[in-house]
Computed example of a mutant assay.
Amino acid sequence: MPHHLMNLRHVPDDEAEEIRALFDEHEVRFYETPPSRWGISMGGFWVHDDDEAERARALLEEYQRQRMENQRRVYEARRASGETGGIWRMLRDKPVRTLAACLAIVVIAGLSLLPFIRIG
Rank of each mutant, 00 (worst) to 15 (best):
M1K: 06
M1E: 07
P2V: 11
P2S: 12
P2M: 10
H4N: 06
M6F: 07
L8F: 01
L8V: 02
H10V: 08
H10E: 12
A16Y: 01
A16N: 03
A16E: 04
A16K: 05
E18T: 06
R20Y: 00
R20M: 11
A21E: 12
A21Q: 10
D24S: 12
D24F: 06
H26T: 05
E27G: 06
E27Y: 07
V28N: 00
F30P: 00
E32F: 00
E32Y: 04
T33K: 09
S36I: 07
S36G: 12
G39Q: 06
I40F: 12
I40W: 09
M42T: 03
M42N: 05
M42A: 11
G43K: 00
G44V: 02
G44M: 01
F45M: 02
F45S: 00
V47K: 00
H48I: 04
D49E: 09
D51G: 09
D51Y: 03
A53Y: 04
A58H: 14
L60N: 00
E62D: 15
E62Q: 14
Y63N: 05
Y63G: 05
Y63D: 01
Q64E: 15
Q64L: 14
R65M: 13
R65C: 10
R67Y: 03
R67G: 05
Q71D: 10
V74T: 14
Y75T: 06
E76I: 07
A77W: 07
R78W: 10
R78H: 11
A80P: 00
G82V: 08
G82K: 13
T84V: 15
T84D: 11
G85F: 07
G85I: 06
G86W: 07
I87V: 15
I87R: 12
W88N: 08
W88L: 11
W88K: 12
W88C: 06
M90T: 01
M90W: 01
L91S: 05
L91K: 02
V96H: 11
V96K: 14
V96Q: 12
V96N: 10
R97I: 03
R97C: 01
L99E: 09
A100E: 15
L103Q: 10
L103I: 08
A104F: 11
A104D: 07
A104G: 13
V107K: 05
V107W: 05
G110V: 06
G110P: 04
L111K: 04
L113E: 01
L114K: 12
P115W: 05
F116S: 13
I117W: 12
I117K: 11
R118M: 15
I119D: 13
I119F: 08
G120F: 11
G120P: 12
G120C: 08
G120V: 10
